[in-house]
Design a protein around this nucleic acid. Structure first.
Lengths: 362, 362
DNA sequence: CGCTTACTGGTAAGCGCTTACAGTTCGGGG
DNA sequence: CCCCGAACTGTAAGCGCTTACCAGTAAGCG
């Protein structure tokens, strides 16, 4: 045995135990605050741990405990990626993921991230991969069919975000209905716009379907006119929004007085597209978004939108999942409240723009 | 034995083997494409797997293989969080993480994310936690001291992002030097500005130190005047940038003709702060950023900055780490090239703003 | 001073999977 | 018709850790 120090080959609690002159059980107990080790034992172990910079193997731990302390999160990456960088399309998702992560930390969990390309046929395989490495998973919108979810839920608890409720999973979403109602109300009643259109998101997104439905109902209810049809089909991306506007203008149609976009990202594309044609927002056409991603307030004009409590959605998704993992409760869907955020793009006056105020004082 | 179906209790390959009428070894072999199972065996296994929706346990697999197929990523979350939402401060980090994730997928790895609060004293504990669950870790800027890195690297391979090179770790960063040089050159030579200042990032950030150093050298070299001192100390956040500007103006000092910000985020705060006081950018003061985060182009004025290949940095970090994990190579630092991106905030003319162009055609 | 009680610490089993090694089966040549 | 090797398949050990269970030890009491 010439192994002087074992330069790299995995350190284990056996090494720690040997160095500390105790048994592996004691090491484990000290490391996990179990039992009541003698003060001296504790110290010897801690010293050895520090000396070796020992970090216990999570896999072994997980196998033994039946708990990995990991939640998986799966979402769709990228859109068509033709509109400049399109990077920001993930703002919304990143926000949610951050919420998940923060909530997870409170329970000692870490977050395993996996994205799936738009047209990646491996979606199911990828999800399984994550499922095997986690105690539970959170699926963003449109990741798996109801059947797929039902199947997988036999192996692992699942929470969906802005998905459709399933018998086998729990969904966390936002109150699209009142959000959209407030928005339409503001545009029609407060601003008096009579011609509206809804620029849709992915046709198979539950959020989009809810928004579209309420938009129609609310607009019709106040007697506003609605433009609609396949040419108003977007895909939640800036590129999609810009594309829709471009086609509409190319075929020479009249634009409605206000365009309600399925999300902020779409609104961003629409505003750019309109600007290129010299159409003023909100002067000629009012635009609204949905989500209130951080960029929304930095756009010109700043974007009127519905604020979803993005991080809270993530946190809530984790909390619900955690309950399911722990086996207590967490089996009813959650709907979080939203709020109308008025900025400039709907026609409201700028809040307090570039105003010289020498004595503002801090 | 009343266990009719074991409603939830973990499914294992034993269950699959029993259902398929083969041994666990065969199941494992089919699942991993090892050996040459008979066609019939393969089918029976696959059928059983499908029927049970079986997903092999990652922890057990990892323990047995000595490979978890997980990389950990640790970064600092949030700043002072006083400037509106400050959410976007993570744009840069999210971009990098996305790059890591995409690269990781190519190797069948998933990414384990963990953030550490700014003043979280648990940083080391948190990093250890992640280390135990991963095969290697990527540390963003300012996560661990050189000593800490040296220690931890005894247990697990480490790659740092924009950190300081260490004997025990490998660093992936950007060419701050030529970026900053190009920027200063543009401001002084092309625009002829003679009075500059550098609004610093975290004092202990290697990137910041490099940028500050080159800024001074380059500006001095062309004979420009430099304002500097403790009041120019920011912290990479918009709030920090705004704060610096506010104090400077409050004490009635003269602003330099151009302010070079440590990063885009800072520039964003600066632009806002200047706007509140009625100071025009770039008319009165030119502003530049560093990073080129996606929002940069949507600001008003749009931001002149140095583009770092954000996602590529992440991908490169993973690739290097992967080499280390696999034991072949990956032991020299990497420096990626950057590029000067000219927009409006430095005084360059707008590229092609709101211009009516009816016949643009697509 | 010997025995009970209360702690501590150690031994060993087992978590679900991979895989070396041994055993089985089947086809073909002797 | 039997034996040999090729081709599969099965058995069992072991990955690093937790923990039930038991042995050892010291303090408390008669």
């Amino acid at each position: 045995m010439t192994e002087a120090k074992r330069p790299k080959g995995t350190l284990t609690i056996y090494d720690v135990a040997r160095l500390a002159g105790v048994s592996i059980a004691s090491v484990s107990r000290v490391l996990n605050d179990q039992g009541t080790p003698r003060q001296e034992t504790r110290e010897r172990v801690m010293r050895a741990v520090r000396e070796l910079s020992f970090v216990p193997d999570g896999a072994a731990r997980a196998l033994s405990n039946g708990l990995k302390e990991v939640v998986g999160v799966v979402f769709r990456r990228g859109g068509e990626a033709t509109f400049e960088d399109e990077d920001e399309s993930l703002l919304f998702i990143d926000g949610i993921n951050r919420g998940i992560e923060v909530a997870a930390q409170r329970r000692g969990f870490d977050v395993l991230i996996s994205s799936v390309g738009v047209h990646d046929s491996q979606a199911t395989a990828r999800i399984s991969g994550v499922a095997g490495k986690a105690d539970g998973i959170i699926l963003h919108d449109r990741m798996l069919s109801a059947v797929g979810i039902a199947r997988l839920s036999a192996m692992i608890p699942i929470v969906t975000l802005a998905g459709s409720p399933t018998r086998a999973s729990v969904n966390v979403g936002c109150d699209n209905d009142s959000g959209m109602r407030a928005l339409v109300n503001h545009l029609t009643v407060d601003h008096g716009y009579r011609h509206l259109a809804y620029l849709a998101g992915h046709a198979d997104s539950p959020d989009n379907r809810a928004r579209a439905r309420v938009f129609e109902a609310a607009a019709t209810a106040v007697g506003a006119e609605i433009q609609s049809g396949p040419m108003w089909q977007g895909n939640y991306s800036a590129a999609g929004g810009a594309q829709v506007i471009a086609s509409l203008l190319d075929r020479g149609g009249d634009l409605p007085r206000a365009i309600v976009c399925a999300n902020d990202q779409t609104a961003l594309g629409v505003i750019h597209a309109l600007a290129r044609r010299g159409i003023r927002v909100p002067g000629d056409v009012a635009i609204t978004g949905f989500d209130d991603v951080p960029v929304a307030r930095h756009l010109h004009p700043s974007l009127t939108t519905i604020r979803q409590p993005i991080e809270q959605m993530g946190a809530m998704a984790f909390d619900v999942l955690f309950s399911r993992i722990s086996g207590d409760g967490g089996d009813s869907d959650v709907v979080l409240p939203v709020r109308l955020v008025l900025r400039e793009s709907c026609g409201c006056a700028p809040a307090s723009p570039v105003t010289p105020s020498p004595g503002a004082g801090g």
